[in-house]
């Protein structure tokens, strides 16, 4: 494989509180190439924080430390806020869980997409509008001319998330970080949104960091999966092998899911081993 887009080595994120310092991410290393990488874990595992750290969108109290945190040869740790602004949205973009909170409620959605494009490309309004309409079409919105004129409160959840995807993908970023992009959506809508995301990412050869709590979904949707627990990566595994995972935590998570294919009486409740906190990451079945 070619040189990875994103390289992370020994990343630590800590929060300095009034009484003590909390380690939220504790020494994780991974790469993201032009592929779909899923990051799964339970709440508090540090998965969302990892995504935000890449864009340096962490809260003020957070302290980031890493041996290496680079995107396409750019050292993100050393990058100035000004450099980061040109990277955000342009080269790396982020899709959040609920479009309601990420769209400006006072601006027509079409305008917002147009603005997103013009922010990073020096083109005229006409051309940007045409691009925005084409993008709305690309995210399978049937009547782009009408939707262009709508305000965010007038669109449904699934439509809103498609608009978000359109807005985030229109500057043609190389890396997309999607933080639970479909958790707020119904299952049937979720499928359509994922299909669109999948198509666009694959067609453009971009990289995708897909942060989710849903193991089944990640196993089917992504190429590779990182399983996080308590700020550590427990396992780094090809998605198709996820159901044969080696790490006890991954196994326990899988076993704790109620299944549709057969009846189970009692579900497995994962027991947690403190040794995992310092244990090795299992990469493709091998402890490293």
């Amino acid at each position: 494989m070619a040189k990875p887009l994103l390289e992370v080595e020994d990343l630590f994120v800590s929060f300095r509180g009034a009484h003590r310092t909390t380690q939220a991410v504790r020494g994780i290393s991974f790469n993201v190439g032009r592929e779909k990488v899923g990051i799964v874990g339970e709440s508090g595992s540090g998965k969302s924080l990892t995504g935000r750290t890449v864009l340096k969108l962490t809260p003020k109290a957070a302290h980031i430390d890493a041996k290496r945190l680079s995107f396409d040869g750019i050292d993100l740790l050393a990058a100035s806020e000004r450099q980061m602004r040109s990277i955000r949205g342009n080269r790396i973009s982020m899709i959040l869980q609920d479009p309601k909170f990420s769209l400006n409620p006072l601006m027509r959605v079409g305008q917002q997409i147009t603005e997103a494009y013009r922010l990073h490309h020096k083109v005229g309004r006409r051309e940007a509008e045409a691009r925005a309409l084409a993008m709305l079409e690309a995210v399978k919105i049937r009547d782009p001319d009408r939707v262009y004129q709508l305000f965010p409160h007038e669109v449904s959840g699934g439509m809103g998330q498609r608009i978000m995807i359109a807005m985030m993908l229109i500057p043609e970023p190389d890396l997309i970080i999607a933080d639970e992009p479909t958790s707020a959506l119904d299952v049937t809508v979720r499928r359509q949104v994922l299909t669109i995301l999948d198509e666009l990412v694959t067609r453009r050869g971009a990289g995708l960091m897909f942060i989710s709590h849903d193991l089944n979904l990640v196993a089917d949707f992504c190429d590779r999966v990182l399983v996080m627990y308590a700020g550590r990566i427990m396992e780094d595994i090809a998605a198709r092998d996820l159901r044969n995972a080696r790490h006890p935590y991954t196994r326990a998570l899988l076993d704790s899911l109620p299944r549709l294919d057969r009846a189970t009486d009692m579900l497995q409740v994962p027991s947690r081993d403190p040794a995992w906190l310092d244990g090795p990451t299992i990469r493709s079945g091998v402890a490293t």
Partner: peptide, 15 residues
């Protein structure tokens, strides 16, 4: 709830 907690609660409800 998280999946592992979901398993706990579902077991509890069943029992």
């Amino acid at each position: 709830l998280d999946v592992s907690v979901q398993a706990e609660i579902l077991n509890l409800l069943k029992q």
